[in-house]
């Protein structure tokens, strides 16, 4: 007998399962009044260092926790614990990004009374942009030594973020990095981006960034009230 072939229309979102888990994480976090931020950047652009600075500023008034995503090692989580904050390390053993299901696996360990939860993604400006983790805010970081031509080269990371942080701004006098140009280019791709220029060495921009986070937490509380 002749085998019968037929076409079946499916139209299903391939990332639908990730999005579903992410939405459920977002709802749980927001209901508890936890503001979660997912940090994206290349390796070495200063995500952990920025989190140390923000964490130290916020920890006296707020409960802050950090999820660290790396391919291997517990090094970043140890750095965060050293400044007195709880940290949970997710090692992906090769995967270039975090996925919502990886967060779901450790979700029970996250205390319900946190105010801020920072999720440091695997260092990579490409792949993590495709995966919603259930965060309320997405940060994209770009450090001065990486060069000022990145936003249009890596548009997805900039399009899906709400916050753009230029890090290592103390190096601006020494490197041909045009911070105004990069800001304009990022805003061209995503006009809604909030832009901050920071330096972990001089402390520049850390306070405004913390104030922004506090404002966002306040907005979440108002929404929940």
């Amino acid at each position: 007998m002749e085998k019968s072939k037929k076409e079946v229309l499916v139209l299903e979102d391939i990332l639908g399962s990730n999005k579903k888990i992410a939405s459920s994480i977002r709802k749980k976090l927001e209901d508890k009044g936890i503001l979660a931020a997912n940090l994206l950047s290349s390796p070495g652009s200063g995500k952990t260092t920025l989190l140390e600075k923000i964490g130290l500023k916020l920890k006296d008034r707020y409960r802050v926790g950090v999820i660290e995503g790396d391919i291997e090692t517990e090094r970043d989580a140890e750095r965060i614990r050293k400044i007195g904050l709880p940290a949970w390390q997710i090692t992906t053993h090769g995967a270039c990004h975090l996925e919502a299901k990886m967060l779901a696996r450790i979700f029970d360990q996250i205390p319900a009374d946190l105010n801020f939860l920072f999720i440091e993604n695997v260092g990579n400006l490409v792949c993590p942009a495709s995966f919603d983790l259930g965060e309320s805010l997405r940060f994209v970081l770009l450090s001065v030594p990486e060069g000022d031509d990145k936003p249009r080269k890596y548009p997805e990371a900039f399009i899906t973020s709400q916050v753009f942080v230029i890090t290592k701004a103390d190096l601006l006098p020494y490197l041909p990095f045009d911070a105004d140009r990069v800001t304009a280019e990022a805003l061209e791709i995503n006009p809604k981006l909030e832009v901050f220029r920071t330096s972990a060495i001089t402390g520049e921009g850390i306070e405004p960034l913390c104030q922004y986070l506090e404002k966002k937490l306040q907005e979440l509380r108002t929404k929940n009230a």
Binding site: K3, V8, V10, L11, D13, I159
Partner: peptide, 13 residues
């Protein structure tokens, strides 16, 4: 432009 969809399958029954 950000979408990733399985549009259709051709199958044998």
């Amino acid at each position: 432009g950000r979408d990733l969809y399985l549009e259709k399958l051709e199958i044998e029954t």
